[in-house]
């Protein structure tokens, strides 16, 4: 049962992502991306990571998507006819690189499977759901510095964005 749900969701995620790339209308593309992110969230839940699933919905499908839509509205990009299809010169290298990375990913997975089959290891027991408490403990005890650093970085990203975005009065001769 779980496997069937997983495959359905995985299919939705992949198709959603492909459509998000190919869709010319930015708002439609974003909606496809949201669909894809939601199915990924459920996949995380199936993998006994409810917390990550919740983050996926709140942060990606929620906050970041709103940000995307907001930027699109602000820059008035919702006109698909203005979009320019990339030339083959532009997408050919990207396609080649994507091929390389997919092939190497496949190699990793195949070699994993091969070594697992060779060892004839029993199927791993499903991991117990990670309690939030455990995540918090890991975050604040082992990575306390990282938490502080992220907050500091956000502050200065804000300072930088504010500086670059600010129009100065009367040109730049002040």
């Amino acid at each position: 049962m779980e496997q069937i749900i997983f495959y359905i969701l995985a299919g939705v995620a992949v198709i959603g992502t492909i459509l998000a790339i190919t869709e010319k209308h930015p708002v439609h593309a974003i909606l496809y991306l949201v669909t894809s992110l939601f199915s990924i969230a459920v996949i995380f839940y199936l993998l006994t990571a409810p917390l990550v699933a919740a983050f996926e919905v709140i942060l990606y499908a929620g906050a970041i998507m709103v940000l995307f839509l907001f930027v699109i509205m602000m820059l008035d990009l919702g006109h698909p006819e203005k979009g320019i299809a990339p030339q083959w010169r532009q997408w050919l290298p990207a396609l080649a690189l994507a091929g390389v990375s997919i092939a190497s990913l496949a190699a990793v997975i195949v070699s994993r499977h091969a070594s697992a089959a060779a060892a004839a290891a029993p199927a791993p027991a499903p991991a117990p759901a990670l309690p939030i408490r455990e995540v918090a403990r890991h975050l604040f005890q082992d990575h306390g510095l990282a938490v502080e650093l992220v907050s500091l970085q956000l502050l200065f990203a804000l300072v930088g964005a504010l500086y670059l975005g600010k129009q100065s009065k009367g040109g730049e001769t002040k």
């Binding site: 990575h143 510095l145 990282a146 500091l152 970085q153 200065f156």
Partner: peptide, 11 residues
């Protein structure tokens, strides 16, 4: 720690 190095790089 790779995390510290990465965040340092980002900062």
């Amino acid at each position: 720690d790779l995390m510290t190095i990465f965040l340092g790089l980002e900062v």
